[in-house]
Write a protein that binds this DNA or RNA. Structure first.
Length: 304
DNA sequence: GTGTTTGTTATCAA
DNA sequence: CTTGATAACAAACA
């Protein structure tokens, strides 16, 4: 379940590998979640150059540019932003020329094979991009939720403005903003933190972790939080997100980085996935309930 | 066969 | 109009 830290890990990895590379060929094996259409991408992506990778919340933005001036003119107001959303089980895996991740070299191991699904391309590969220098980018997705969408600058601006609130660690995410956001909502605090239009980037894992760190029960009405609690939660969110980025994200089911490796933050999780196990602070068993339609983990004693 | 997993959107109610 | 709550989607796994 890639959330902000996982997408940021992929963005940083891929940025080093992809910046300046040319797209030579695109093969689309699954057409369902490709926009505007598979035919459009197949026609327009080849020859484009990847010049930068951006991210907004959980959305990865591949900035493209044309290779020659003729093409540039034609594409001036054209679709040169490739949006990639990994949703639940999407993966972007980069492979060097003649160097399979499974070819018996050092990275090859069982957990890697399990998370990726075997040598690439495999049955989970939805799109394959052949790039300059003999390199390849595989877009894998077990469940078909993840998508690719090619848009122009105008569409991109609209999408970002409409769907994404400020994100943790950004200048826009101030304590003042956070206090006002929380005060004007009646819903439970977990549902609010999950809402991307309110705050972009948090998902189920980091919401549970941040609420534990701030000693706040997920079911609490947002409005009922005291000024001190809001401040604690604000700090908890920033701390969890920056730690998770530092540890290259959390692998719970299938997240892998651009080299197919799992994230290291899993071992730092304090409540997510620990139902029935002792709270690391007070030893009370962690409970699991359903809230906002999601599995929700918390400590009955620590979180009020 | 059943229940579980979650990011996001659709839908409906107030 | 906004806000809130819930179902639905997808596919594999225990």
């Amino acid at each position: 379940m890639p959330e902000l830290p996982e997408v940021e890990t992929v963005r940083r990895d891929l940025s080093k590998k992809l910046d300046g590379r040319q797209i030579l060929k695109i093969q689309i094996f699954d057409f369902k979640n490709v926009a505007p259409s598979a035919a459009f991408l197949t026609k327009h992506l080849p020859q484009m150059i990847i010049w930068r990778l951006d991210r907004r919340g959980k959305l990865l933005i591949v900035k493209l540019r044309a290779t020659n001036s003729k093409l540039k003119t034609r594409l001036k107001n054209s679709k040169n932003n490739l949006l990639i959303h990994l949703k639940m089980t999407g993966q972007l895996i980069y492979q060097e020329k003649n160097l399979s991740l499974f070819g018996g070299h050092s990275l090859s191991n069982k957990s890697l094979a399990a998370a990726v699904g075997g040598p690439l391309p495999n049955r989970f590969t939805r799109v394959q991009l052949d790039l300059s220098g003999g390199t390849t980018l595989f877009f894998n997705d077990l469940r078909k939720f993840a998508y690719l969408k090619l848009v122009d600058d105008q569409e991109l601006a609209t999408i970002l403005a409409k769907n994404y609130g400020p994100e943790p660690l950004s200048p826009e995410f101030t304590l003042d903003f956070f206090q006002q956001l929380i005060k004007r909502h009646q819903t439970n605090i977990k549902a609010l933190l999950l809402k991307q239009t309110a705050i972009a980037g948090l998902g189920n894992i980091y919401v549970d972790e941040a609420l534990f760190l701030a000693d706040i029960k997920p079911k609490r009405r947002a409005k009922s939080l005291t000024k001190q609690e809001i401040s604690n939660l604000y700090q908890a969110i920033n701390q969890i997100i920056s730690q998770a980025i530092k540890y290259r994200g959390t692998t719970f089911s299938r997240f892998v980085d651009a080299s197919g490796r799992q994230g290291n933050f899993s071992q730092h999780l304090k409540v997510y996935g620990r139902a029935g196990q002792a709270c690391l602070v007070c030893q009370t068993p962690i409970v699991k309930i359903k809230l906002a339609g999601r599995g929700t983990h918390y400590c009955l004693k620590c979180q009020r």
